[in-house]
Design a protein around this nucleic acid. Structure first.
Lengths: 131, 131
DNA sequence: TTAATTACAGTAATCGTTATCATTATTATA
DNA sequence: TATAATAATGATAACGATTACTGTAATTAA
């Protein structure tokens, strides 16, 4: 079972994820944590991001461009991807709405739906202002 | 603008996508088309899958495991990923429901939502039977 | 304080995908 | 038709993101 051992690097990664709203990629996490640990290895970042995801202290989001983004927000919520600037933002959708969607989907489906994740697309407010 | 030229390989790929319900990966497409074109190159498969996606004759779906699946069904629809067997299935959700979800999401969001894509998780009917 | 074990940094390996390039197939035109 | 132009191919090299490996350092338990 391999008991978990404290590490300052992991704490730093976790703290960054919990305080940022950037939904960073592994490389963005690496760049950031490098400020405190100049010779941290990219492998350490990956190892810990996956570890945190496994123990439920981070969420791994796969984006349409292939790669992953990481999120320290653990409550179920959805995301919005701006098709202009590419930013990934949080999008609130109350539990009732989420459950309603799952219920609608279950109507025409021959299995059990336990959860769902929606990615919304469009133009974010910043991009609208600029145009 | 590079005019498109016919190719038997591309037709074969397109035909397979339109007739299968498997939501194949690039490699699965490669394996299949290889039966008709034994020395087709994997690069050709990728090139054509991306081309078909670009001209709107195929859809590229990114899955939580990182990779992509391809779909010949062009009407907007959603997908279900079985957490037991890993199969990716179609899931019908009428346009009204999809629009309703987008409307609900827009309520708490400061931008324009043009579309959305939901991936549902749970257990498919086959896996339920087996347990 | 020592022994056991996990995490680390650094680096090599892996995997899916793209890019390159010389050759072949398709299309337009003479 | 025959020819010329150009897009597509197969083969292979290159790429970027992620994972695996290894010897050393840090953390924890005895």
């Amino acid at each position: 079972m391999a008991a978990l051992k404290y590490s300052r690097q992991r704490e730093s990664i976790k703290h960054y994820l919990m305080t940022t709203k950037e939904h960073p990629t592994a490389d963005m996490v690496y760049m950031h944590v490098k400020q405190d640990f100049p010779n941290i290895s990219l492998g350490t970042v990956y190892r810990n991001l996956n570890l945190l995801t496994d123990i439920g202290e981070a969420v791994k989001i796969s984006t349409p461009d292939g790669g992953y983004r990481f999120d320290g927000r653990l409550e179920p919520h959805n995301h919005f991807l701006c098709t202009k600037c590419g930013r990934l933002l949080d999008l609130e959708l109350d539990m009732k709405s989420i459950e309603e969607v799952n219920r609608l989907a279950a109507e025409n489906f021959d299995g059990i739906i336990t959860s769902s994740s929606t990615l919304f697309y469009g133009e974010c407010s910043d991009c609208i202002k600029k145009s």
